[in-house]
């Protein structure tokens, strides 16, 4: 009996510790799209999200997106942080929109890729690209298909019809743990994380005021994007492509079931220990 309790306690504790890693956690993320035409500056999304590794849901996604065509020719420096060394504009993306119909699904789990793609927008709706010739108006493929032209085109003036939206689509792998995740993608060879290759961004903000930038609309009706030609058939409008992504744990909170199992294990171990002392 004592032996049974001891074994049960140890097993429950181990199970409890293991299941404690199946948790809802908050993570920091830095996704980089390489921009060959604006070097040394890249398009970078720096943000955070909550991830449930059981349901693979990504929630509370938000962050800042750099505009690599703005600022001086100085790269973002992680050591000094946003605008520590660089002076690029950073667009605030705060709206992780709820999924709608099939063409308006912004966050979804892809079993083939082994992870979740999640999108956060600047606006409270997803309209980004023109829908004059069809398309859903926001997805990376729709952007490629319309050549990166802004929503509302060809109506003028742009300032009125362009909703000036922006978004970042990130990839969260299923096997994300508290240790974090590092992914890379080589567009030249098509090697690396296929999930990362599916990530994209779009930035259609227009100039505000004169004498400086507020955003990174590119040329006329074409905004700035990054996509992989391996996935979407074309690279971004300024040749931007997925490059790297680093996820680190900000805080991991184990789920209640895990806590219960672990406590049960500890309880069994304690009971076994007490009986052992009594028998002595």
């Amino acid at each position: 009996m004592k032996k049974t309790l001891l074994v049960s306690g140890v097993l429950a504790l181990i199970a409890g510790i293991q299941t404690a890693q199946a948790a809802v956690g908050t993570y920091n993320i830095t996704t980089t799209w390489y921009e060959p035409d604006t070097q040394p500056r890249d398009s970078i999304f720096i943000g955070s999200f909550t991830f449930d590794d059981v349901t693979h849901s990504v929630t509370n996604l938000q962050g800042l997106l750099s505009e690599s065509m703005s600022g001086d020719q100085v790269a973002y420096n992680p050591a000094t942080g946003i605008n520590g060394t660089d002076n690029m504009n950073w667009v605030s993306l705060t709206n992780q929109l709820a999924n709608g119909d099939a063409t308006h699904t912004y966050t979804w789990h892809d079993a083939t890729l082994g992870g979740t793609l999640a999108t956060v927008f600047k606006n409270t709706n997803s309209l980004t690209f023109t829908t004059l010739t069809g398309g859903d108006g926001w997805s990376p493929q729709a952007g490629v298909d319309v050549g990166g032209v802004y929503a509302g085109y060809p109506k003028k003036p742009q300032a009125t019809v362009n909703p000036q939206n922006a978004y970042a689509m990130i990839f969260v792998p299923d096997n994300l743990t508290a240790a974090g995740s590092t992914l890379s993608w080589d567009e030249a060879t098509g090697s690396g994380s296929l999930g990362l290759a599916h990530t994209a961004y779009a930035d259609f903000l227009e100039l505000v005021g004169s004498g400086g930038y507020d955003a990174g609309g590119m040329m006329g009706a074409v905004g700035m994007t990054a996509t992989s030609a391996w996935v979407y058939g074309a690279v971004g409008t300024m040749s931007g492509v997925p490059f790297s992504q680093v996820i680190t744990a900000a805080a991991v909170v184990p789920e209640p079931e895990s806590y219960a199992l672990m406590l049960a294990g500890l309880g069994l171990l304690g009971l076994a220990s007490r009986r052992q002392r009594k028998s002595c």
Binding site: M69, P157, Q158, A159, L205, E206, L207, V208, S210, G211, Y213, D214, A215, G216, G217, M218, M219, G220, A221, V222, M224
Partner: peptide
């Protein structure tokens, strides 16, 4: 320069 900000303004 043309409208649209970014690389071709102002």
């Amino acid at each position: 320069p043309i409208a649209g900000g970014g690389s071709m303004c102002c």
